[in-house]
Design a binder for these strands. Structure first.
Length: 151
DNA sequence: GCCAACGTTGGC
DNA sequence: GCCAACGTTGGC
């Protein structure tokens, strides 16, 4: 089993939305590296840090779990959708998404807290210039975050 | 709103 | 294959 961090803008889809929906497809990833993580490495049961980005208080907002393996992202074929991709054809879909299930909401662990935690210095999300919306989290990082930083 | 950093595109 | 230009991300 692996651990992951997935970013979302709470104004688009935040932890409260997932709590309400219980489970949701992770639509809209349009980056090859992030797609490959979902397609090749994510497995049902993997645990995920739900991260809020581009908002007044960026940070880890909750935990969810991979509930369904990668499948074609339906929004890529919908011209009305902001994630529409005319390059992708239904017989050879370019983009996939997993589904995640709500596990719990956390008291927000702010980005600033992550930054000032030496044990997390190597986290992908904290590296300079990192923009990947899906990144692996090491066992040690997961352990530290979920035991030391969660109230 | 600004800006640094990155990924993608497209001309050559 | 190179690389400049452009669009996007995301913190501040």
């Amino acid at each position: 089993m692996r651990y992951w961090l997935m970013k979302s803008e709470p104004s688009e889809y935040g932890i409260d939305d997932l709590k309400r929906d219980k489970q949701s497809a992770w639509f809209g990833v349009r980056n090859y590296q992030a797609r490959n993580f979902m397609r090749d490495d994510m497995q049902v049961g993997d645990l995920v840090l739900f991260y809020h980005s581009t908002c007044p208080q960026p940070g880890i907002a909750g935990i969810c779990k991979v509930a369904k393996a990668a499948a074609p992202d339906v929004t890529q074929f919908d011209p009305e959708d902001k994630h529409y991709d005319p390059k992708s054809k239904p017989d050879n879909p370019l983009w996939v998404c997993v589904e995640v299930k709500f596990v719990k909401k956390l008291d927000l662990i702010p980005l600033a807290t992550l930054r000032e935690t030496p044990a997390l210095a190597e986290m992908r999300i904290l590296q300079r210039g990192n923009r990947l919306s899906i990144t692996p989290v090491s066992d040690a990082e997961w352990e530290y975050i979920t035991t030391k930083l969660v109230k």
